[in-house]
Design a protein around this nucleic acid. Structure first.
Lengths: 225, 225
DNA sequence: CACATAGGTGTACGCCGTACACTTCTCAAG
DNA sequence: CTTGAGAAGTGTACGGCGTACACCTATGTG
C-alpha cells in the first residue's frame, strides 16, 4: 500500500517550488494565490513547502527574482539607447506575463537576478557617459515609468484596441446610470469614451511612445554635457 | 447598564467608515489592515461595517477615491505646464501619505473624485493644444511615472539623504556575507553604495527632475505641432 | 547494518472576510 | 402618546488562510 511504486516522486526543490509558484500566480492572480493552493498543485501537504522556503514573503521574493531573470539586461559595448530600449520593453513584457510581480519589484530583499540586472543597467548608463548623478536620475525615471505603466495595464488590461474604448464606455454608462447627465459633467472623459475606439489603442505602442520620449530627453541631456 | 447614557454614540456613516479606514491603513499598512481592526477602531462589531460598505473591496475603492480627492486638479485657464506640474507633485504627496493606495489607483471602479480628476487633467492637455492622440499619450506617460515613482519610494522609503546610502550599503553587506567578493561582481551597485551618501539624495528633487524631463518632452512635441 | 539528518506529514491555533438571523434604536403616521 | 416599520448594530458560525510544532519516513554515510 502506501505508495504505488511506479509513481516516481520527484523530490521537491526550492527551484521547483518557485517555478510552480510563478506559474500558479500567473494563472490565479496574487489574491487567490495561497501556500495551500501551491502545495496542492505540487501534490504535497502545505507544510512541506516550508522545508524549502522560509515563509510566504520569502517565497514571493524568490518569485520576483525569477521575473527579474526574464528581463534582458544591457550587454557591454552595445549602443546605450538601443540597449535601454530593449531592456525596457522586455521588462514590460515580463511584467505583463507576471502581473502579480508589479508592486513587489522593489522589495527589501533583492535576489541575485535583480542585482545583476540593476548593475548591468546602471553600468550601461555610466559607460554611455552619463555622470553619476544623472545616471541615477535616468535610472529612476525609467524604472518608475516601466513599473507605473505595468501597474496601469494590469488593471485596465485592454490588449486589443476596441476593448479600451469598451472599458471607457462601460464606465461612462455606469456613471450615467447613477445620476443623470453625468457624462456631460465630464466632457473630456466622454471624448475618450467616444474617440478611443475610433483611433485604436495599442498598449505596446503606447509603452514605446513613452520610453522613447524619456530616452529622447536623456539623449538631449547627454549631448549637452 | 448597557450604555452609559452620557457616551453619545455618533452613528456610523459611510463617510466616517472611509475616513477611519484611510487613517488606519496609513498607520498599519495594507497587509495589516483588516475589517475587524477597522471595526475595533470605530468601537463597533465587525459586521456593523457591512451596513455601510458592501465588502472590503468596495471599501478600498472608496478609500482610493478619498486619495484622489486630495490631489490638486488642474484648473481652467491656468498655464498647462505649471498646472500639470502642480498636479503631479500633489499626486505624489498624496501617494506618499497613503502608501497603500499605490497599485489600487487604477481600479476597475473609479469614484467621483477619480473621474473629476481625470477629466480635469485630460481637459488641461486638450486645451493646451495637444491633439487627442497626443493628449492620451501625454496622460499615460505622466500617470505611469507618478504611480511608478510612488511604487519605488514606497518600499525603499528613504526620506533623508543618508538613509539612501545606508540602504544601498546594507544590501551590499548582505550580499558580501552570502558569498565572498560579491560586491566586486557588481561594481556599479558598489558605486551607488559608496557615492549616493556623499552626493545626497532627495526623493522630492528626484521626482521633480523626472516630471520636468517629461514635461520638457511634451512641450517640445507641442511646439512642433 | 545502524543511524543521523533532511524531507514530508498531521494536527492545531489564531487570524481573516463575511453570510445569516437576531435585537435594538429612530422616527413618521395614526 | 402609541405604534410599528425600516435602519443600524450584534452574535454566532463557517470556511480559508499562514504557519508553529511534534512526528514519521526515506536516504545516504560510516
Amino acid at each position: 500500500m502506501a505508495q504505488p511504486t511506479n509513481t516516481l516522486r520527484i523530490p521537491l526543490t526550492r527551484a521547483r517550488v518557485l517555478q510552480a509558484a510563478v506559474a500558479l500566480a500567473d494563472q490565479t492572480g496574487l489574491d487567490a494565490f495561497s501556500m495551500r493552493g501551491l502545495a496542492q498543485e505540487l501534490g504535497v501537504v502545505p507544510m512541506a513547502l516550508y522545508k524549502h522556503v522560509a515563509n510566504k514573503e520569502e517565497l514571493l521574493d524568490g518569485m520576483v527574482d525569477i521575473v527579474f531573470g526574464e528581463m534582458e539586461s544591457p550587454g557591454a559595448g552595445e549602443d546605450w539607447r538601443a540597449a535601454l530600449r530593449r531592456r525596457a520593453i522586455s521588462a514590460r513584457d515580463a511584467l505583463k506575463r507576471h502581473r502579480w510581480a508589479v508592486g513587489r519589484m522593489e522589495s527589501r530583499h533583492p535576489g541575485p537576478a535583480n542585482l545583476r540586472h540593476h548593475n548591468a543597467t546602471m553600468g550601461c548608463l555610466r559607460e554611455a557617459g552619463f555622470s553619476f548623478e544623472t545616471a541615477v536620475h535616468a535610472y529612476s525615471i525609467q524604472d518608475a515609468y516601466i513599473y507605473g505603466f505595468a501597474l496601469q495595464d494590469q488593471d485596465l488590461a485592454f490588449e486589443n484596441p476596441q476593448s479600451a474604448g469598451e472599458t471607457a464606455q462601460r464606465r461612462a454608462e455606469r456613471l450615467t446610470a447613477e445620476r443623470a447627465s453625468a457624462l456631460d459633467d465630464y466632457p473630456y472623459l466622454a471624448e475618450i469614451a467616444t474617440r478611443l475606439p475610433e483611433t485604436g489603442y495599442d498598449n505596446v505602442l503606447e509603452f514605446a511612445w513613452g520610453i522613447d520620449l524619456i530616452l529622447d530627453g536623456l539623449d538631449q541631456l547627454r549631448r549637452d554635457a
